[in-house]
Design a protein around this nucleic acid. Structure first.
Lengths: 304, 304
DNA sequence: AGCATTAGTGAATCATGGTCACAAATAAAT
DNA sequence: ATTTATTTGTGACCATGATTCACTAATGCT
């Protein structure tokens, strides 16, 4: 039976979960666009309604009660169901609309996704697109991100990973550099060259080469390392040495003959080796804007 | 991510489910204690928020949209989770408190449950008890009933049935009647007697007797039938014939020698034959008032 | 010890959702 | 067909109750 008490409880429970997630009244208040004072009263009201203490409060730290934790679980169910209801409604809408937030690694964003933006926005004029550069892990649901592009084939728990292409690591250098220093024919020769690597981790200058049954592990050196593919490519174009790249980054530069491939007959293992995939929450009622976006991306990345 | 939009949606969704259940704005309004006008606005608001039509409305009839049905499902989840949250909170409470609504067949209510009321209310001063006579089927959740006493061993789908005792059918008559008409020694002789049966269904005057491997089916006749055990018992006391009863009904009358058993060595099959059971929603977080009530009843019915 | 940050409180304000009265629509009944 | 009863919808007005603001109290960190 649905009572008035229950109805009036719902928004408070949903708000409660925000406070819990943010860990403080002030943070939650900022997120919700209200004053901490309002939240304080709201939580007190909720505590009275349930006659349960939700927080152990010192003025400096909020501590969730055991009872509170259980209530949080229920509140999460409530919020999720409501989210789902919103999904359903946007599903029923024939023309995709609403906000769509997409995250992707910097390089992928600028190089691969950028050219898709304009045609996508034109094709779906009711959709608002938010792009977010995101290297490193992110909490999709908490940050309200609908799709993340990742360079892995291991799906995060509870999320769907749809492969949309392969990515390989390739080496290249500028014609000028190679004219001066010579074109290496086997990986071992790289030790005599200046190489541009990521420099993010301490293993980024260890390059592993495979061809058939042969395999070489080479520690390269160089004068310039940067973990931004675009800048590394510029470094290569300026003749600072041989650079390592996800292949999609250098596709254009290769075509324009600005750079030439190096040791293209060898495979390189590394972080950026493997599949490109879209990751999103699988759902019986997927918002149509999400559906059309993934479809759009698949179409354009396969034909490209 | 929990947004303000989502939060403000929740009570509307919960209200929506009431309107759907009641099937009309006015009925739902009555249930919630508001005006239909308020509901009309609320639903319109909800429809705008979801940009989905929830109802196909003629002024005389509400018709739920296909989209609406899906939303109802989600709303049901929301309401259930909230209900659960309330349960949890009352679970955490050390002293059982709150409203407890119990339904039972009329006879069981007056005879078995009545003597338990006072001690129960004394033992748990924070609990408010509502008893409701309920023969026939009822929708527990919709009517907000916590426990139903039933005379069956077939649990309703989704609910737990806890057996608390046996009930058998017995015959009895007043000494005066038997003195005048004689004590029947075998079931067949009943056809020569006036019998008091329920008269609810057309088969209520068909009594089936079993003793060991023997079995008799007797169609009895009588001048007085009533589906209220208490009144039937009065009829028997007044010497109108031999009555059929759930045994707990006549326990006292037998002790007081107001009535005497008839054909006590035969078992009687029928509606009221079998187990007495409490039925309630099984739940990880059962409100403590419900827990103590079932426990209390079990204690007192076993020792009685 | 003092500063900075965060929760709690009370009064004033403001807005949202509610009621009321009325209109419009429609199904049933005569 | 006309009336009647019932139900949804709308706009003006209103009131409750939530929010804000300003301030206090408490607490952790330096």
């Amino acid at each position: 039976m649905v009572t008035n008490k229950l109805i009036s409880l719902l928004p408070d429970l949903a708000t409660y979960i925000v406070v819990v997630n943010e860990g403080s009244f002030t943070a939650a208040a900022k997120k919700l666009g209200v004053t901490p004072s309002a939240l304080s009263k709201l939580i007190t009201r909720l505590e009275n309604a349930l006659s349960v203490k939700l927080f152990e409060r010192t003025t400096r730290r909020l501590l969730i009660t055991e009872s509170g934790k259980k209530i949080v679980q229920q509140s999460a169910i409530i919020v999720e169901a409501a989210q789902q209801a919103i999904n359903i409604s946007s599903c029923e809408h024939s023309v995709p609309a609403g906000n769509l937030t997409v995250a992707a690694p910097k390089a992928f964003l600028t190089i691969v996704l950028q050219p898709l933006v304009t045609p996508f926005l034109k094709q779906y004029p009711e959709i608002n697109l938010k792009l977010r550069a995101s290297d490193g892990d992110i909490d999709m649901i908490e940050q309200g991100i609908d799709v993340v592009f990742r360079l892995t084939d291991k799906p995060t728990q509870g999320l769907i990973l749809k492969e949309i292409g392969k990515v390989n690591l390739s080496l290249c250098a500028s014609p000028a550099y190679l004219k001066k220093r010579g074109l290496p024919l086997v990986p071992q020769e790289l030790t005599q060259h200046d190489c541009l690597y990521l420099g993010e981790t301490t293993k980024d200058h260890i390059w592993e080469f495979v061809k058939g049954s042969q395999s070489h592990i080479i520690a390269v050196t160089g004068r310039y390392a940067v973990n931004h593919s675009q800048m590394r490519l510029n470094g290569v174009k300026d003749g600072f040495g041989i650079g390592i790249f996800p292949d999609f980054v250098i596709k254009d530069a290769l075509q324009n003959k600005e750079v030439v491939p190096v040791l293209a007959d060898w495979q390189i293992k590394g972080n950026y080796h493997g599949v490109i995939a879209m990751q999103y929450a699988q759902n019986k009622y997927m918002p149509s804007r999400l559906k059309v976006f993934t479809e759009f991306v698949k179409q354009h990345l396969i034909t490209a």
